[in-house]
Design a protein around this nucleic acid. Sequence first.
DNA 1: TCTGGGGTCCTAGGGCGA
DNA 2: TCTGTCGCCCTAGGACCC
Length: 419
Amino acid sequence: MFALVDCNNFYASCERVFNPNLNGKPVVVLSNNDGCVIARSNEAKELGIPMGAPAFEYKTTFDKFKINVFSSNYALYGDMSSRIMTLLSGFTPEIEIYSIDEAFLKFEGFKYHNLLDLGSQMRDQVTKGTGVPISIGFAPTKALSKVANKIAKKYASRTESVYVIDSDEIRIKALKWLPIEDVWGIGRKHAKRLKEIKIKNAYQFTELSDDWVRKNMSIVGLRLKKELEGVPTLDLESVVDKKMIATTRSFERMLTSYNDVKERTSTFAVSCAEKLRNQGSHCNAVMVFLHTNGFRKDLPQYGRNIIIKSPFPTNSSIAIIKLVNTALEGIYQEGYHYKKAGVVVMDLTPIDQKQLTLFNSENTKHDPIMSVVDRLNKSYGNNKVKFASQSMGRQWKMKQEHLSPRYSTNINEIISIKA
DNA sequence: TCTGGGGTCCTAGGGCGA
DNA sequence: TCTGTCGCCCTAGGACCC
């Protein structure tokens, strides 16, 4: 049996944990730069705030309904997530952390265990330990546990947030209930095509022929079909090293000078290099992209990306900045208003599998310098150590007008209780 | 004025050597 | 020496997830 545990409206719930006044009130959390809505409490959903709503367009709605608006606070959400995952790990060693707010758990040999009781225990322990409400779906496959979870969440009061699919009868009933566009693994494009041939719910999807699904939706679609039929094709996935690492951002305002863009991409390069060192990897290539604001039809549009191979595997911030600068020179064009840029490090290899090259060897001093940089940043806060191409005086800030304190990860921002 | 960020997997199609 | 075919590798692009 698989269980899918999903935190309800995770970011909004995290904000509520340290601010109980928000209970019962509408809450939304915005993306980086306070751009669009990425999480909503049930009350905000009921007021018709859609996922992805641009914040500036909904400002009057926020004011009108007294919606509590927060900038995203990833320090807080990341910490809450790891506390929840630790609690869940107490129930089974077989756990796959699927995202910041979701985990698949596998229960072998629990045939005669009462899953409803088990789910209730999990729910109570996480709620008691962290204050974040969760929903749990049990089923014989991962895709079906997603379906069960949706039901647990949708009918929270009736199911007490735990739902079990353990018979064919319940499975079919659940699949008939689930609209095709809500099936895990079926995105917008496939949902549209399926609806065109009158497939409206998950059950009808399972009635299609294997051949049709294989032909039109590839092996991925066929695996999904089997999963929904109750035949497991997906197992828990173990944590593997990332195959690419990216740092990309929209700018608060549009940039028109080469040096401004270069400062940004250098900072992205440093961030990617740090992530590489954390993972214990080197990169063998970097990709840099930049583009103008696609929403501004009145301005000329431009966007390009370029991949540059590194002469040697590296995770040195200095070496990666150099590569990124070379790449940027290749694609930067004067005369445009740039809104977004990013650096992606690719072709990653483990540090201990370094191939020696005859030419172009790297500077051997970089490794010790980077470990000093990492230590300093760890002790004095991130990004204290800057490299020459990064801005020194200038402070690049994300727009974060509604940021909550980092209650759980910064001693200066812990919650204070007034007597 | 203001519209996120970070990933994975699969397939088709072209280049290329056997 | 030329041509056809097969399979491998690489890349771009599409689809999906949170």
